[in-house]
């Protein structure tokens, strides 16, 4: 149960709310178009759909946003939004760094396999 008296007494202006809803909708549409054009995999799409969903919820359910602001001792509603955005972007950067490292290892292994196979093929060709 939300105790509204404990909430930060601020709210998004109708313009801010509309901008957040439009931004989330645009994000949804862009991701769908990218997946349709095969420029983005469904697996990475899931992450961005989640971002759009959280933005939409935050814009529509402002009591929830005030609850987060209160928990973080924030004095404005936009502060927790910025904090969450920075945390999310940091998490994404770390995730992609891990992926890149993993893929660098895989490319190296693949190149080594190709080199060894080429050597075997040339040996077979010479002995034939």
């Amino acid at each position: 149960m939300i105790d509204t008296s404990q909430l930060v007494p601020l709210q998004l202006t109708p313009l801010q709310q509309a901008a957040a809803i439009v931004a989330a909708t645009l994000l949804f549409v862009s991701i769908l178009v990218l997946i349709y054009r095969r420029r983005l995999g469904e697996n990475y799409g899931a992450m961005w759909f989640l971002v759009g969903l959280v933005t939409l919820i935050a814009a529509i359910w402002q009591d929830g946003l005030r609850l987060v602001a209160r928990a973080l001792d924030a004095v404005t509603l936009t502060a927790p939004l910025f904090l969450l955005s920075i945390l999310f972007l940091t998490a994404i950067a770390v995730h992609f760094s891990v992926k890149l490292s993993e893929q660098a290892q895989q490319v190296k292994k693949l190149a080594q396999e190709v080199a060894l196979l080429r050597e075997q093929a040339e040996l077979k060709e010479d002995s034939a």
Binding site: I35, Y36, G45
Partner: peptide, 17 residues
């Protein structure tokens, strides 16, 4: 959960294409 999301979305995309 991921499977449901992925296959449903990929199916819709395959039909649209």
């Amino acid at each position: 959960l991921y499977y449901a999301y992925k296959v449903a979305l990929a199916s819709v995309m395959a039909a649209l294409r």
